[in-house]
Structure formats: structure tokens, C-alpha cells
Amino acid sequence: MTDVKNILLVGVGGQGTILASKILSNGLLEHGYDVKMAEIHGMSQRGGSVVSQVRYGEEVFSPVIDKGNADIIVAFEMMEALRWLGHLKPNGKVIVNNYKLPSARINSGIDQYPENVLDRIKEKANITIIDAADIAADLGNRRTMNVVLLGSLIQAMDLDNIDWNTVVKENIKEKFVDINIEALQAGMNCIK
């Protein structure tokens, strides 16, 4: 039996983690894996910390990823990477967007954004930093940041044998397909 792989996509409500995990899980489904994906909707999503959990393999039971059991964490925001680090396997990988989104309480001066986030992750785990916001902006649409990160994830998990362009076409509005395919490729190119 092939091992089940566990992917955690974390970020802030509105960053497009849900769309990224939707594309990811549909690609895995097309490839013939059993796939489960868990998210939480509702009150917790308003400007809050969001997480999508994607598990795939020959047969997946629980949709939930335990602490210490994620093979990879893709963080769309830096502080969120640090928040979820406890879910990573000790030899797991972290892909972090080089991007800060302060909370409303930080913006209003009540809380402070933690310091040296990237260095602190680097001390503990195998980290790859992606300038997804800049890459997306260069492509002409900052909102494709999520698909850039998805591209990096796909490459890091050696999932590039799946026909992702078709999956993107099936899951994204027609007028945004081309730019998102470019974003995906740009993200994949970030991983060596």
C-alpha cells in the first residue's frame, strides 16, 4: 500500500487557499488517488486563520491531519506557517510565501506581529521561501499568488506528472485560465 501523504495549506481568509486546495485535490482525483480534503467554513473564516487539509494515497480514512503528521505545509502567510509548524513531521517541508498579512488587532496597534518568523522556521524545518506576491504581480495579477504557491507545492511533492493545465482549465473561469497556468508554471520553477 502506498503511504498516505498529508498536505496542509494554511493562510488567511480571502487568500485563495480553498481554490488552491480544490485544484490540488481534483488533480489528485484525476490521477486515481483516493483523496480527502477538510476545511472549516463559517464564523472562523472572517479575516481569520484558515486551513485546508488534503490527504491522498491508495486509501484515506480520516480527513484530518494530526499534529506532527503533515508531509508538507504550504503557508500563504508567514505567521500562519509558524502557527501550524507543530503539525509538520520532523523531516517535513515548509513552503512559505514571503508575505505578511497583519491581523486587524495588529493593524490597530493592540497586538504585535511576531519577529524573525522565517529564521525561526528555518531553525526547525526544511523551508523554501517563495516571493509569490512579486511573481504574481509580475504576471499581471496579484490574486494568482495562490496558484504560484500551488505550483511550488506540486513540484515539491513530485506531482508534476499530473496534467495540471487541464485541471486548472476545469476549475477556473475561462478568462483567468491562461494567467493561472502561467502562475502554476512560475511556482513550479521556484523549486529545484
Binding site: 494530526d66 506532527g68 509538520l88 520532523p90 488587532r105
Partner: peptide
């Protein structure tokens, strides 16, 4: 699964230990 494993098998995954004390919440 973690709760079941800890409670019935006394087993849990090895975790990365780190200082999370200054991570602030994002209340709605």
C-alpha cells in the same frame, strides 16, 4: 485520530518543539 491514539494506545506523533508564545490570534 491523535486523541484516539493517545487515549487508547498511549501513542502520538513526534512533533517539532518551538516557541509559539508570540503568535497572535486572528479573531473574526
Amino acid at each position: 485520530p491523535d486523541i484516539i491514539s493517545k487515549s487508547l494506545l498511549n501513542k502520538s506523533h513526534e512533533m517539532i518543539e518551538y516557541d509559539a508564545s508570540d503568535i497572535v490570534t486572528r479573531p473574526p
